[in-house]
Design a protein around this nucleic acid. Structure first.
Length: 410
DNA sequence: ATAGGGTTAG
């Protein structure tokens, strides 16, 4: 009894660490447990297989499978489903299919995952075959089967079929989940079927379910895309009134819309609100803000925000820097842009392309040529038009030997 | 397991 309890406790610990992507700590729990006489069971290993497939890769999942076999613990359908999901997430279709032939009888989850894999690879016919197989076989489809099918149809451009399937399912007694509604609303909006989307939204309201942050974010997205900003912001307020005030995803959507339309005061307010609530914006949001500030002519504000962004500990702020460099040039501060460029540890072909073009505009062809060569030396690709601008400029300025040198590197 | 947002050069 004591032993069983401790295995369960160990599994809960392992699962908790896996959930937050701390796989070393999960492994350490197992090591400690073994030392105290508690052995991992099939659940422990299944948790690990799922985590390694998800956060590392399929082979890492397989290596857990081997460890499992060495420990004389037999994998079951859950183990295989995790591997199938791992193969599917990394778009490894043939390995996904291989897993169906390894002696474990697949269940409806296995097929759901396979169907999802086909849809992600843009193979709706194959996905549909799997769906038909599930429906006609002894496996009974679950709501995930239907949700996955509806989502896949929408994402692959079969919105009409999705709507037809949805209605047909309802006639057969299928009760949609909130997720089902969210999938359909997004799919219908994406295809421009706004009236149908509104109908579904109304049905959601009548169903007794309440829209969640995801629903609101979807609706907002399409309002902003259709340039109906006031309507989008109204939706945002409704969302907050309903109590969804802690979803960074939704906030960042609004943030970007503000930044793009020059409503910078409101962005700053919202950013403050987000950070006050202890939420975090990602690189995209900050980059959009920096871009918006530049476009509004507030270069100093953008520089200040870029510095602030540097303190936030993102892996890379490359795009924000690229943006800053380009906007500085366009605002006439090319030398400042070059100074920033020199401080950048990571650069990509966009950094170079941007500077090369801006330098050419200022007829600083020699400088542009040096940068272009540096870029090529680092093995980065530069598009033809960019190369041509520099070579032409050098010729026009009579810098023939430099032109020849550049040509030889191209 | 399946649903939501967003960035730079030419």
């Amino acid at each position: 009894m004591v032993c069983k309890l401790s295995t369960r406790l160990m599994n809960i610990c392992v699962a908790s660490f896996c959930k937050v992507q701390q796989l070393e700590k999960a492994e350490a729990v197992i090591v400690d447990a073994i030392r105290l006489g508690t052995l991992p069971d099939v659940v422990t290993y299944n948790t690990l297989v799922a985590a390694y497939c998800r956060f590392v890769d399929l082979d890492a999942g397989y290596s857990v499978l081997h460890r499992m076999r060495e420990a004389d613990i037999y994998p079951n359908v859950v183990t295989y489903n995790s591997l199938i999901a791992g193969a599917s997430n990394h778009c490894l279709l043939s390995r996904c299919l291989d897993l169906f032939d390894e002696g474990i009888r697949p269940d409806v989850w296995s097929y759901n995952t396979l169907m999802h894999c086909f849809f992600r690879l843009g193979k709706p016919e194959e996905a549909n075959k799997v769906f038909q197989d599930i429906v006609t076989s002894k496996l009974s489809p679950c709501s995930t089967t239907f949700n996955t099918m509806l989502n896949g149809l929408c994402k692959n451009g079969y919105t009409a079929n999705a709507l037809m399937l949805f209605r047909s399912l309802q006639r057969h007694g299928f009760i949609p989940q909130l997720l089902t509604y969210n999938i359909l609303i997004d799919g219908l909006c994406k295809s421009g079927w706004l009236r149908a989307a509104r109908t579904i939204l109304k049905e959601l309201g009548k169903s007794g379910l309440s829209p969640n942050a995801s629903t609101y974010t979807t609706v907002m997205k399409y309002c902003f895309r259709a340039r109906q900003f006031e309507e989008g912001i109204e939706v945002f307020h409704e969302m907050k009134d309903k109590g969804y005030t802690y979803d960074a995803f939704a906030y960042c959507t609004v943030n970007s819309a503000f930044a793009k339309t020059g409503r910078l005061e409101e962005v700053y307010d919202l950013l403050y609100e987000i950070e006050e609530a202890g939420l975090k914006c990602d690189q995209y949001t900050h980059t959009t803000l920096i871009d918006g500030l530049c476009r509004a002519g507030n270069i100093d504000g953008a520089l200040k925000h870029l510095k602030y962004m540097d303190t936030l500990g993102f892996d890379s702020n490359l795009v924000a820097y690229n943006c800053m460099v380009d906007r500085l040039c366009k605002a006439g501060y090319t030398n400042n842009a070059l100074k920033i460029f020199e401080t950048m540890e990571v650069k990509d072909c966009i950094t170079y392309t941007s500077l090369v073009h801006n330098l050419c505009k200022e007829r600083r062809f020699l400088h542009a040529s040096k940068l272009l060569q540096a870029c090529l030396n680092r093995g980065m690709k530069v598009r033809r038009p960019t190369q041509r601008v520099v070579v032409k400029g050098l010729h026009r300025s009579g810098l023939y030997s430099e032109a020849r040198m550049l040509q030889s590197k191209i």
